[in-house]
């Protein structure tokens, strides 16, 4: 540091993130998504009053990476478990962190009803178009023609149906206060995602209903391409199939002004 007169911290680990290495693969955007959540918890001063709900999938160990209380749900049941926590502790902040297999396949019933009830929880939804933890099988979000280990010839929509656009689906429910889709494929979009995560938690602390941020994410390991190409793949293939945007912003949420 010779020659540095006035040093200033410009980048550090958010206090809400535990000081441990994650198990995530190199280039995976789970780390980015975790960081955004942690930064928001820090900014809003929520770490001490938050209970996270981890799900089953790559984010199964999310409880190791955040410095708040955590519970670990069964596959797909995080919104139900979060409902139980939130109903008993209405003054606490409760969020789930779920992948696409967990949320949009096995847990579709639980997420739809949590949103329909206007359950005052926040859902961080990682959409990477495959089942990461089990080694890259077809997910409800797998794109038509996309090759996975369980659709080796590519997803044939005649046989395997079409991808589910969860944000759009949940946005039809009156209980949803804030439902948006963002992407983590470049810095600009990461900044937009951060703002959305913040708004989702703001929605919850104001009691404005169910909030969810769907985050288009990469899975370089299972996609079989390098991290940089993975980011490009999100932009080229996922964004057109899962358009970014605000699908439900309740009037009261739209009036929130962030400083």
């Amino acid at each position: 540091m010779v020659g540095v007169v006035n040093s200033q911290v410009v980048f550090e680990r958010p206090a809400a993130m535990s000081s441990v290495a994650t198990h995530y693969c190199p280039g995976c955007t789970h780390g980015v998504a975790h960081r955004l959540v942690a930064e928001v918890l820090d900014e809003m001063g929520l770490v001490e009053k938050t209970v996270g709900v981890a799900s089953v999938g790559c984010s199964v160990f999310a409880y190791n990476y955040f410095d708040c209380d955590f519970v670990e749900a069964a596959h797909g049941r995080a919104p139900a478990m979060a409902t139980g926590v939130k109903r008993m502790l209405p003054d606490r902040v409760v969020f789930t962190y779920q992948g696409d297999g967990d949320l949009a396949s096995i847990g579709m019933g639980e997420i739809v009803h949590a949103a329909a009830r206007g359950e005052n929880i926040t859902v961080i939804f990682i959409n990477n178009a495959n089942y990461g933890m089990t080694g890259g099988q077809m997910a409800p979000t797998t794109l038509p023609g996309q090759k996975t280990t369980s659709s080796p010839a590519g997803r044939d929509v005649e046989q395997m149906g079409f991808p589910i656009r969860t944000a759009e689906l949940l946005a039809t429910l009156e209980g949803a206060g804030y439902v948006v889709r963002r992407s983590l494929h470049d810095p600009k979009n990461i900044r937009l995602a951060k703002k959305a995560v913040r708004l989702a938690f703001e929605t919850q602390v104001r009691g404005l209903g169910f909030s969810m941020v769907e985050l288009l994410s990469t899975c370089p390991t299972n996609w079989g391409i390098n991290p940089v190409d993975s980011l490009q793949w999100v932009e080229d293939h996922m964004v057109p199939a899962f358009p970014l945007g605000d699908y439900k912003v309740a009037d009261a949420v739209a009036q929130i002004r962030l400083r």
């Binding site: 139900a80 478990m81 409902t83 139980g84 926590v85 109903r87 008993m88 009803h113």
Partner: peptide, 20 residues
């Protein structure tokens, strides 16, 4: 009191609630 959407959800709500 909460009427769940299924027994599957009900027991997992109880699971979360019991954790508190």
């Amino acid at each position: 009191f909460l009427q769940a959407e299924s027994e599957l959800a009900a027991i997992n709500m109880v699971y979360g609630a019991a954790c508190t």
